[in-house]
Design a protein around this nucleic acid. Sequence first.
DNA 1: GCCGTTTTCGGCCCGACTGTTTTCAGTCG
Length: 581
Amino acid sequence: MTVHNSEIAGIFDKTADLLEIKGENVFRVMAYRNAGRTILGLAKNAADMVGRGEDLTELPGIGKDLAAKIEEIVKTGRLSFLEKLAKQMPEGLSSLLKIQGLGARRVKTLYEKLKIKSIDELKRAAEKSKIRNLPGFGEKIEGNILREIGRVKNSEGNFRVSDAEEIGLPLLEYIRKIEGVKKAIIAGSFRRAKETVRDLDILAACEDSSKAMDSFIKYEDVDKVLSHGKTRSAVILRPSGLQVDLRVVPEESYGAALCYFTGSKAHNIVLRKIAIEKGLKLNEYGVFQAAGRRGGKEKWIAGRAEEDVYKQLGLLYIEPELREDRGEIEASLKGRLPRLVTLEDIRGDLHVHTDLTDGQHTLEEMVDAAKECGYKYVGITEHSKRVTIAHGLDAKAMFRRIKEIDRLNKKLKGVVVLKSIEVDILEDGSLDMEDEALKELDVTVCAIHSKFNLSLKKQTERVSRAMDNPYFNILAHPTGRLIHERDPYEVDMEAVMKAAKERGCIMELNAHPYRLDLNDAHCKLAKETGVKVVISTDAHSIADLGYMRFGIFQARRGWIEPEDAINTRSVEGLKKIVKRK
DNA sequence: GCCGTTTTCGGCCCGACTGTTTTCAGTCG
């Protein structure tokens, strides 16, 4: 049995929920949530750390008690403390907390007065108007609950970042055009470039906030206004069901508000603690010098720009993608922040399909488009024959394609086409193409497209055996997950990275917004293991080449610097680094 | 439950909005 980090985090989250509903000390509850978050953000498997006898109390927010609980979960797959709790408070109660407007206190009331312990029971009670008479509830809350139940069931309230971008950018433009709005930006988890977001948080600088608010709620796609205040409003958009919050502040507070509204919450909490240590106060309006001992007013000292806020706290500016309280504050204090990779650093895309297999555009069209992106090289990667549905290439067809690319390269200026392939890794770990063909290529991209459900051990062996082939260069979309559609397959990523390191193989960060595979923690693991990554789009059309930005975002969340990625190099540098001895 | 160049006990981030209340608790970010 391997217990995954997400499972440990899930158990801690559920424990926190139940403790909160029970009315336990809020800081104790927070300790469980923090620990869950720490485990989830870990690059390594906590289970392996336990196996190696590493000291878990070294991890932030994990003390003696929680370390012991992690050990119990790793060894038994269960947490007896949670099971004991669940006897007093049914576990299903934690699902009720997902309903916006229901917190611990109200869930407790629902359970104690009406024995409600599931969303279905909640729905039935609300429909019979039984909720409105409970203490602390009313007609409006009952109505909100019914609406929220519909929302949770329909959308899970979770959007891929590319979908959120598509909905959010037109709204941002609309807000920027409202009279009196000086600037506006989408902040929140979107700005931190998380792969999925629950809502959009838009920040605007404006002197007349109520006017901006009135215009905001009149946006044509607004389905429902959730709240409408002087400085803050929230709406639901149609047809997506995406929630958007708008916060308006005066211009001199824009930086502090941006910091506050970008989060993460955990990052903000640490910033505020640092402020307190320095005798300052940090909120969304600025950094303040605390009031003197003889009273007097606190004094505003910074807040116009984010950079000023960090500076006042004695910190180097921290890029939004790093703001997860995963070591970035310590790195900032020590002057060891990474110089994160940017789109401008990228000199080529190494995973591009054409209409010879399942792409939409011709070889020439894709190469032209890559050149338009400013790239110096592009790797053309057709599927191999195992992917029959895409009419994958056999060796003979591969040789024809090689000749075609040679001819094209003679004509091209400023961009080089790299001869490549997306070759299947078969179940036994062999590659779906003869070595005589593979050795003619500049670089190979190797991928699993079948037998996703092998055991962890078998899948891991399959990949590392494939890497034994001297023509194996890049492992494409290493976990095979499709966000919201398909779970990652079981594979020991630490072992795969080690195998890649030993053999000089490279890990792909697939930039397709449905994949984003490697994830952020894997990127960090690659960096720590000393394995290079390549950020590629897996483009099947010209438009898909634009997905590179999502890959860059994910790489930045994984602390990737230009030298950690291979497609930031010149074509000569690239060829040298993929070459195996 | 965690944590400590003021601490091993007593703290633990800060403000807006709603709805149910008569001054504020609950929730959210």
